[in-house]
C-alpha cells in the first residue's frame, strides 16, 4: 500500500499529463460521432432507398470490424493511397467513424420507440416532415436514448486507449513508457486504471445528471 502511494506521488503527475489528450480525443470523437450518427439514423429511418442502403452498409461495416483494424487502416493503410494523417487525427477519425455506427443504431432504436401517433399528430397540424422530426421526434428520441448513449460514450472513453498503438501520447502510452523505465508495470497500470475509473465514473454521473435534468414524465425508455 505504501509502495503504491509512493509510486503514485512520484509518477502520477506524469501520468496525468495524458489526461487532456485522452479527453480531447474522446470529446472530439464522441461529438463528431454523434452528429454523423444522427445523419446515419436519419438516412436509415427517414431516407429514401439509396440513403437507407448507404447508411445500412456503413453501419454494418463499422460494427462488423474491430476498431483497432479500422485505426490501423486509417493510419497505416491510407498513406499507401496518398492519404496521410498524423496519429492524433487518425485516432479521432477512427473512433468517430466507429462510434457513429453504434450511436446511429441507438438513435434509430430510440426514434422507432417514439409512438407513431406523435409523428401523425405533428403532421396533422401542418408541420412539415422536417419540422415534425426537429420539434417532436428528436426531443423525445434524444431523451429516451440517454442511458444507452451514456454506455456508448463510456465505452468510447475506454477505447481511446487503443490510440496508444499508433503512437498517440495519451494515458496508456505514458503508462507504458513509465512502466518500461521503472519496470514496475504492476503499479503503473494500477494507477492508469484508477485514472480511467475516475474519468468514466465522472462522465457517468454527469450524464445521469443530464438525464434527470431533462426528464419529462411519460418520456422514458421503458
Amino acid at each position: 500500500m505504501l509502495d503504491f502511494l509512493r509510486f503514485g506521488i512520484e509518477w502520477l503527475p506524469a501520468l496525468l499529463k495524458g489526461v487532456p489528450l485522452t479527453l480531447a480525443l474522446w470529446v472530439i470523437a464522441i461529438t463528431l460521432g454523434c452528429l454523423l450518427g444522427l445523419i446515419l439514423c436519419w438516412a436509415r429511418v427517414y431516407g429514401n432507398r439509396l440513403c437507407y442502403w448507404i447508411s445500412t452498409v456503413y453501419i454494418e461495416l463499422f460494427r462488423g470490424t474491430p476498431m483497432l483494424v479500422q485505426m490501423f487502416f486509417i493510419y497505416l493503410g491510407l498513406p499507401h493511397v496518398g492519404i496521410v494523417f498524423d496519429a492524433f487525427t487518425a485516432a479521432v477519425i477512427a473512433i468517430t467513424l466507429n462510434s457513429a455506427a453504434y450511436q446511429a443504431e441507438y438513435f434509430r432504436g430510440s426514434v422507432l420507440s417514439v409512438p407513431r401517433g406523435q409523428m401523425v399528430a405533428a403532421r396533422a397540424c401542418g408541420m412539415s416532415k422536417w419540422q415534425a422530426i426537429r420539434h417532436i421526434m428528436l426531443p423525445q428520441a434524444l431523451r429516451r436514448v440517454i442511458p444507452q448513449w451514456s454506455n456508448e460514450a463510456i465505452i468510447e472513453l475506454k477505447f481511446t486507449s487503443i490510440a496508444y498503438t499508433i503512437g498517440v501520447v495519451e494515458i496508456t502510452a505514458i503508462a507504458q513508457d513509465i512502466g518500461s523505465r521503472t519496470l514496475d508495470f504492476f503499479q503503473v497500470f494500477l494507477w492508469a486504471g484508477l485514472i480511467y475509473l475516475v474519468l468514466t465514473s465522472t462522465v457517468a454521473s454527469l450524464l445521469s445528471w443530464v438525464e434527470r435534468r431533462t426528464h419529462v414524465p411519460g418520456v422514458t425508455t421503458n
Binding site: 409512438p115 399528430a121 412539415s128 411519460g218
Partner: peptide, 20 residues
Amino acid sequence: IDAMRARIGFVFQDFNLFSH
C-alpha cells in the same frame, strides 16, 4: 397539404399529445 392541414383540426381517438 401543410397549409391546408393547419386549417383542418384533427382530434384523435388516443389524443396523441406531444409527450415531451
